[in-house]
């Protein structure tokens, strides 16, 4: 009997605490800085082109093969406006297959991909979860607008390269 009363005392103490439940769709808890949503591509604002050069390293390292990338020659490089010889031609990411592991971001040599915080991607059609290049760039832009540059430590390096 004593044990039960002790337990009840604990329950009563807990009842007096403020609740920790948050009514989810109406209220959102703040996400951690590193929170990983689905990946997005970054846009080089200075040259007005994608940072992705289409090297496919992310596609090769992806555990679920959710990316489809193709590469082309960069016209802006021929004109002398850009330091990127090659440019991404098409980039499709199957969000329904992405497992948000962050390996693509880790292996990218050009700091062109970033884990955005976009995670509420409910959609009615299956094809709706295929993100094309424009969508991915929009996701990356949204991320940088909210959180500042995705790779602040490498920002200076990029500028030097552009100057050359």
């Amino acid at each position: 009997m004593i044990g039960v009363i002790k337990g009840l005392a604990t329950t009563i103490k807990t009842m007096l605490r403020s609740p920790v439940t948050v009514q989810y769709p109406d209220k959102h808890l703040p996400m951690a800085d590193r929170f990983m949503g689905f990946p997005g591509l970054l846009w080089d604002v200075k040259i007005d082109e994608s940072k992705c050069v289409g090297c496919k390293v992310c596609a090769r390292y992806c555990p679920t093969d959710c990316m489809y990338v193709s590469i082309k020659d960069n016209e802006k490089y021929a004109e002398g406006k850009s330091h990127r010889k090659k440019m991404v031609d098409d980039f499709v990411l199957d969000i329904s297959r992405c497992i948000v592991c962050g390996i693509c971001v880790e292996v990218c040599n050009f700091d062109a991909i970033v884990m955005t915080q976009i995670h509420e991607i409910g959609n009615t059609g299956r094809r709706g979860l295929w993100a094309d290049m424009d969508t991915l760039h929009a996701m990356g832009k949204e991320y940088e607008e909210e959180h500042g540059p995705a790779y602040p430590e490498n920002q200076a390096v990029g500028e030097e390269e552009t100057a050359q």
Binding site: A32, M36, G102, I103
Partner: peptide, 19 residues
């Protein structure tokens, strides 16, 4: 457990499948 998952979220950005 929720508090621990919040800690993990700080570190690696995921709550269940950390990798």
């Amino acid at each position: 457990r929720e508090k621990i998952l919040d800690l993990f979220e700080l570190v690696c950005g995921a709550r269940i499948t950390f990798s």
